[in-house]
């Protein structure tokens, strides 16, 4: 069923299964995202894509919401911008993001978000929690200091690779992505060494060992390719 509605006062339409985010992107309306990755099941967790619906007090995540007929959506109000800046501030305060010495410096989605949203500094207290780096894998490494818990690695490993090596342990602020039974990645019996998680990761948390500061560029195009090839079958 096709619905017609408005985004930022522009008339748009959504086809079966298309979310507000899908439609916004078709019309080059920028809605920031972090946990979303085209080709993976959306989870609505980072809350950056929240948008306003006229007549409703509640904000809705564009990545998982289908617009109803006649809805009037706005994606860029002053309030939304403020909330988004705070979300990014929260992520910087939660982890230990030292862009200057990060492999993904210059290619990081979190860093870019901060720049785009004008998040120039954090008014929140940094948590400075000690987090591990696991470099036991022969090709890859994970630095939990830089992980934003978007679970893109978990989903790509489960949904695309089918290995489900990654998952999340613990809860709340203690949450952490793990391989198998929270064992060193290098000793995982399920990892296929495919590297999809590396590319799906928006920050420098997952990286190739051969990369130095600023050298780790991610490429997520494989997702679209795999999806197309699977549809062809």
């Amino acid at each position: 069923m096709v619905t017609t509605f408005k985004i930022n006062e522009m008339d748009v339409s959504a086809g079966e299964g298309e979310t507000i985010l899908d439609v916004a992107r078709q019309h080059h309306i920028h809605v920031p995202t972090l946990c979303h990755l085209e080709g993976l099941t959306p989870v609505g967790a980072c809350r950056l894509c929240l948008v306003e619906v006229k007549g409703s007090a509640a904000l809705v995540p564009a990545c998982v919401t289908r617009a109803a007929e006649g809805m009037e959506i706005s994606t860029d109000s002053e309030r939304l911008q403020r909330y988004r800046r705070m979300i990014v501030e929260m992520l910087f305060a939660e982890g230990n993001h030292i862009c200057a010495v990060c492999v993904s410096n210059g290619h990081c989605e979190l860093q870019a978000l901060a720049g785009d949203l004008g998040m120039t500094h954090s008014r929140l207290g940094f948590l400075y929690r000690q987090k591990r780096i696991d470099a036991s894998h022969y090709r890859f490494a994970i630095d939990h200091n830089r992980c934003v818990l978007c679970t893109r690695c978990v989903r790509v490993c489960d949904e695309i690779e089918g290995a489900h090596t990654w998952d999340v342990m613990g809860r709340g602020i203690q949450s952490q992505v793990i391989t198998d039974l929270a064992q060193p990645w290098g000793s995982s019996s399920t990892c296929t060494n495919c590297g999809k998680c590396i590319n799906a990761c928006p920050t420098g948390a997952l990286f190739k060992k051969s990369k130095a500061v600023g050298e780790m560029e991610k490429d997520t195009h494989f997702l679209g390719y795999i999806r197309t090839m699977r549809e062809v079958k």
């Binding site: 342990m169 809860r171 793990i178």
Partner: peptide
């Protein structure tokens, strides 16, 4: 955890995720 995961065919990491949640 390994035994239950194997019997129920649940991925190891998911088993651990549930156990620690």
């Amino acid at each position: 955890l390994r035994y239950v995961a194997a019997c129920l065919r649940v991925p190891l990491s998911k088993t651990y995720g549930v156990a620690t949640f």
